[in-house]
Design a protein around this nucleic acid. Sequence first.
RNA 1: GGGAGCAUAGCUCAGUUGGUUCAGAGCAUCUGCCUUACAAGCAGAGGGUCCGCGGUUCGAACCCGUGUGCUCCCACCA
Length: 881
Amino acid sequence: MELSKNFEHKASEEKWYKHWIEKKYFSSTPDEREPYTIVIPPPNVTGVLHMGHCLNNTIQDILIRRARMMGKNACWVPGTDHASIATEAKVVQMLRERGIQKASLSREDFLSYAWEWKEKYGGIILQQLKKMGCSCDWDRTSFTMDPAYYKSVINVFIDLYNKGYIYRGKRMINWDVKAKTALSDEEVIRKETKQKLYYLKYLIEVDDSPMADGSNTNFITIATVRPETIMGDTAICVHPKDERYKHLHGKFAFVPLINRRIPIITDDYVTMEFGTGALKVTPAHDMNDYQLGQKHNLEVVDIFNEDGTLNADAQIYIGEERFEARKKIVKELGEKDFLLKTEEYTSEVGYSERTDAVVEPRLSLQWWVNMKKISGPALDVVMNEDIKFYPSKFKNVYRHWMENIKDWCISRQLWWGHRIPAWYDEEGRFVVASTEEQAKKMFNEQFSIVNAQLTQDEDCLDTWFSSWLWPFEVFKGYSNPGNKEAAYYYPTNTLVTAPEIIFFWVARMIMAGMEYKKEIPFKEVYFTGIVRDKLGRKMSKSLGNSPDLLEMIEKDGADAVRFGIMISSPAGNDLMWDESGNEQGRFFINKLWNALKLVKMWEARQGNSQQPIANSFAVDWFDNRLNEVKTELEILFKEFRLSEALKTIYSLIWDDYCSWYLEWVKPGFEQPIDAEVYNKTVDYFEELLQLLHPFMPFVTEEMYHELRVSKDGDDLTIKQMKPIELPNKELLATAVLLKQVISSLRDIRVKNLIKPKETIKLSIETTNKKSYQQIESILCKQVNAESISYVTSPVAASISAVVQADKFYIDTDNPIDNTSQKAQLLKDLDYLKGFLLSVEKKLSNEKFVQNAKDDVIDAERKKKADAEAKMKAIEESLAAL
RNA sequence: GGGAGCAUAGCUCAGUUGGUUCAGAGCAUCUGCCUUACAAGCAGAGGGUCCGCGGUUCGAACCCGUGUGCUCCCACCA
């Protein structure tokens, strides 16, 4: 069949993906082979594919496909994460669009809407991964709220509670007023924010005693960025050693606008230099103030509702939103002469990761995991490199966090998620149990209450409290411990993820793995960089600088997109993504396609040996070159230097195979090609496609089938790689020489205006005639020489060139441009003189000869000899001019 | 405030225990070619104070110190 002019990516992608799935090539079941397992970092079930996913999943696919082709039982487990806050927010928004308020729904009704939403949109991102060519085992698709998974999460909670690792406690937490839920510390993003620092006057309670310094100051000035919280003030605090305020120790002040009488206390927590050195203490709405409050036994006045509006305890502006209230309060403070001045001020403010609302510190009763109890082994396995981090710098980051680990707030005031299995009676007593019956039984046992009226905790667990079980629970490693699959696939091999979630997820998976499997969850973690745009900005939805992936795949093809992201992706560093990478990918595909066309043309032209010597050199050389590069690739893959691996394959195909090898074995116009050479050429092509396949699966599979008639089931995606053989260094060196000679001769042809079609007569002056004889005919073809002869002295009136220590002369009838030739030779000579000088200096330096290693000295001696030989050759050439 | 990382060609980056002719690659630029697979191509070329300064060494892009600039992470200074 006639080959199409270009690779048609759309049809090919559809055809091959379907074929691979039908053949179940991506399905894995335990067998006698060594497993290679990756669990996908489950994307949000609400998510759509963005550039970060593209990078991350392309990398995973490359690793898994290569493992599959190297004889491993490759298993890539896909799935999604229920993403409690994000999903619930989307469902709430959907309901709002339909005119339904969440508050008007029962929990059950809301959840049925949520599930409906999940069924409808939840699979989108997985379909998008298929478009990219990801070779996941789709039969294993998991979801963190699958029934069995759900149960495991609940049982883990119960287990940790029974071990005393989980507790319920009233603490200051990060409150998301938009989602109306608690957040963990990790879900708070700190951003530099421009604010105002307000200087407020608090009147001092007047008593009979005069001021110590005789002044008549009857107020104290405090500085705050949150004037709307003054109604929650329950003290003013100054530094005990601050002379300015010593006369106020033990006195009372009044909160402006509401006139609450509050004590002036002292604590060395206060920084005298900041603001006025006097601090308003609001224990209900600030982490530090809360601690101060506890220490000094202060009253706690909570003035906010859960949505961030002021409540009745605020006394004024009740029902107003906090930032609206701030504006109004500032205005009123100004009018009533309490506001002394306002300064511009920049500080870090916490925002909710999911909703971007300014986080409100809030005192509330939540569930916590005591992290110190489970973090120990998880720290050790990373520090001693049972789990290896790439790049290793993340080890330090990890250690720092683990050593300063704080308790994890795991309850969320949401409905979408795993409901906390705690049961309360009317008096607030509670037990933790998986079912109501169980809970009743426990109430009976613990409190001697028969048939207690119980209600279950309304809250859900943090999403990460489910995804930390991912590496083993996707194999039912917790719910069905010791099962064959978990035993075979766990620990998994490689985790590929973003450094942003090292604490959220990576650290906690390691903890859960150590706690429940007594084994690491993965052997290595490869942290990818962040995808940025040309200007270095992080790609994000809000900036609108993230391209539409599906559109790109449609336009350029999945292979080109995969090429584009991988070619610009240095290991572990951020990458500046630019659409021109896709273009380079497309050009590369085109190059491959044209090479295919050429080789296919030869298919019907096979004959008997025509140019045996030249071809056997080319064939032998490429075999060795392939093995040389395969060795390099081994190392690159081991270190996750995938971008370099791709570059290496790219250059092997484009330069070595297309530019050199194919030209060397190419038969003359309409001439036959030796059948054996042809077969070797196809073999090499196949092997190249195989090396490239993990990066660009579709075009390579397509070409594999075009190249040679294949039997059913003979597909590239499962074709096993050939083992590496040791290359012949001498042969490789001869090829390097050959390439250098060809380039030099082409160069002087161009410089001397010899037309491409014009043949030359070439003379070679060398001490190594044997090497040249095996490459003679290639050389002739490549520099368009009609003859080659060997000489022992310079050829007069010719154009000359020097490569290594050999001299080349071209006879020509053209007028010779001696000047440029001379200039070039002189330039080379000059360079060599300098070079030789430095080498000789080294060799005559006693200290060098004493200190340097023998092989370094030998190398220097060789450099000297080579340089001298070459200089001699150049000088002779110059003399002949 | 603490910690980490980066700085090499116009751009994006390699440069793996300091020593081959080591100053590299891709893209971009320039020159010449529609040469019988490929102009989405071929054959060539130019281009750098390896951020500044100081030090160690026979020898430094590489090691040490310091300065500058940028990035990221962590941390409760109103």
